[in-house]
Amino acid sequence: MTTALLIARRELRGYFSSSSGWIILAVLLLLDGLAFNAFAMAGEKKSFDVLQSFFYFHSGATMVASVFIAMRLFAEEKQMGTLVLLEASPAREAEVVLGKFLGAWGFLLMFLVLSLYMPVLVMVNGKVTVGHLFAGYLGLALLGAACISIGAFTSSVAPNQVAAAVLSGAVVVVLVLAWLVAKNVEGVLGDVVGWLDLFDKHYRTFSRGTVKLSSVVYYAALSYGFLLATAAVLGARRWRG
């Protein structure tokens, strides 16, 4: 765990010292604020509905942020030739992957914290519960963790950051649109595809202020699965030939 935290600290430092990290934060917060003003605050709405709209739009920004944050995790190190430092060290592949995931997730959590002023404004000027706020942000954090895990995996297999971003974006879109497929497939297969849905099936309940254990398990399992696959890709690099 010490090694993972060491790697996470360095990763986080990498985000703060690169201009791309700050640009991602600034652009997405700006778009988020505009969307909040234009859609969530538009017309006469109850505070509950405003907050629900906020979490709806903010989930899009969170997914986009996750894809861009995660694209550099391994692809950049491969391009710069620094991955060899981790590969030649006694660190386990799992420690490397966990450390990088924690660094990227930590940066995403900072993005989420910086967006707090919007729901707090709703809270001050209207009537929403802390529970709703908590559930919404828990959902965003879990959704972000899943998207970063997908991004970590694609970053480990892609030759560069752009390819990693395109690949992880495609996987996220497929998982977000799984409900469309599920609607047209009958029986158990339809149920399975529907359950795999990243957004409609599992996130919407969080945005309404409800925490469902099955959705927490879904996001945790999805993240774990992709992180495990990333560790396997790193391990396989030693066997390449």
Binding site: T3, L6, R10, R13, S17, T82, V84, L85, A88, S89
Partner: peptide
């Protein structure tokens, strides 16, 4: 084993001291 590849694996945003300390901790 300590390994220096043909292209040193260095993070440009770190100071020399931070880089050496990081590598030392990473390698146990």
């Amino acid at each position: 084993i300590g390994f220096l590849p043909d292209r040193p694996p260095l993070f440009p945003e770190m100071t020399v001291r931070q880089m050496v300390a990081y590598a030392a901790r990473l390698c146990g």
